[in-house]
Nucleic acid binder design. Structure first.
Lengths: 108, 108
DNA sequence: TTTATTTATCGTAATATTGCAATATACAAA
DNA sequence: TTTGTATATTGCAATATTACGATAAATAAA
């Protein structure tokens, strides 16, 4: 086994899980932190700032890009990565609905 | 390899990643959904409502409990699980700071 | 006490994720 | 064209996660 049974869950549940995976590794959290605060969002700078190999950072960037949370812009030989603001807002909405549910019963 | 290098990241980055893992599997999202909306939060009910084996649900509940997001209350032979509201609010604050950062530069 | 019920844990198999060296690709500069 | 620079991809090894049957533990009911 070890295979997530996506088909038994709702679309919303699966989407929350997919998006949460983006934040479920500190390297990706660090990348996102960097993209928010830094003036330079060049891939190579991220490799320098975060202490992981270039191949590893590239892989994490790919995952974030696949989820639509960041965009990449080719500038000559380097690539500039930025937060995809529209998708970021969409993501925030999804988590907001999940986080702000009302508790019906709480017996503990 | 395959070992996350936690020591090169900040405490905040590691905590966000740990908490995000709670939501990074649809079964745990489904469990939390159920605890919010349901009148009954008995472990056995969760097993019935979500289509996974009892051992699997128990394991997911344990992870949520380890993160402090839920509490378990023994009632005879069964166990009632509920959202830990204080911790839930704390978690929301942590994600809120992360989600609502200001973008300094956005060149894409 | 015996039996049934409920949940937790153990052991195991399978898939997923992480990390990186090596290499490929793409473009710029000489 | 050749060389250098930056990023992506491939292949592989190692750890982590997921799932569940079997079983243990704890309590309730008979």
């Amino acid at each position: 086994m070890g295979l997530t049974k996506s088909e038994i869950f709702t679309d919303v549940q699966n989407e929350i899980a997919s998006l949460a995976k983006a934040f479920a590794h500190p390297a990706r959290v660090a990348i996102l932190h960097q993209l928010f605060k830094s003036n330079s969002c060049i891939c190579g700078d991220l490799v320098d700032e975060i202490g992981l190999a270039q191949a590893t950072i590239s892989q994490h960037l790919k995952e974030l890009k696949n989820l639509g949370l960041i965009k990449g812009n080719i500038e000559g030989t380097s690539v500039c990565y930025c937060i995809n603001e529209e998708r970021w807002e969409e993501m925030k909405e999804i988590f907001s609905s999940f986080f702000n549910q009302n508790i019906k019963t709480n017996c503990c």
